[in-house]
Amino acid sequence: MTTFPERIGRFLLTAVVWAGFVFLTLPLIIIVAVSFTETEYLSFPPVGFTLRWYEQFLADTSYLESIGLSASIAVASTAIATLIGVPTALVIARSTLPGRKLVSTIFLSPLILPTIVVGAALLQYASALGFARSYLALLAGHVVIIVPYILRTVLASLERFDQSLEEAGQDLGANGVTTFFLVTLPIIKPGIVAGALFALIISWINVELSIFNSTASLMPLPVKLFNYVQYAVDPMMAAISAATIYVAIVAVVVLDIFVGIDRVAATQK
């Protein structure tokens, strides 16, 4: 049973929220729509339908190289960050080692430190040691900024689950390593997958860090797009942008199928 003012209130809330959802999706929908226009300039609503802007950017090998570089850095940095994040989370959640709180704070701090400062620091440091603007500098920086995403989701899953399962494993004679692989790992796997997928995407879309250590021949896709949009705003830019939106849609759907997007959302804060 609802009263009249309550129904008005509910209606207003729903209206505000759906306006919010339109705000969140409209820019992406516009880009996808514009990317099919037959005109030489950006036109909304699009005129006709053509795939030539997609063909044009796929024929440009420099874009394919940038996509390859971005994908390679994203995959490699996620793998390294997982190997760093999971053991760290285990120690923080399951040991009494002095200083583990400090380790946790430092490893999570790239979440609130300006990425641009992390990027600048890495450029300055790498210049002094002679590996500035290299694949190694890009890779190391990406690992640093994505470790927190894996660390916090794995920590959240370690804190949530019933520790008596691990004790049961050990009572039955399994040692620590066996218990980890047979009991702990299968239970925290969704947390690892969710954190790793988030980390992968954060690396894939990063500009602020990469821009410091990029060169003309070593340029991740987002940096290339950033340089491009500053002097040309055309349908090809829309086609490339739209392609990255398709990647985002696939990533969100994969995340939902394997872990459940509502569960992931609950641990991302």
Partner: peptide
């Protein structure tokens, strides 16, 4: 709802700004 919220989060800041340039 969560998909609508997280999807923009998974596209780069440039792409998202580019959408507003068009708008």
């Amino acid at each position: 709802c969560y998909i609508l919220v997280i999807m923009p989060l998974f596209t780069s800041n440039i792409v998202r700004s580019f959408g507003w340039i068009i708008l």
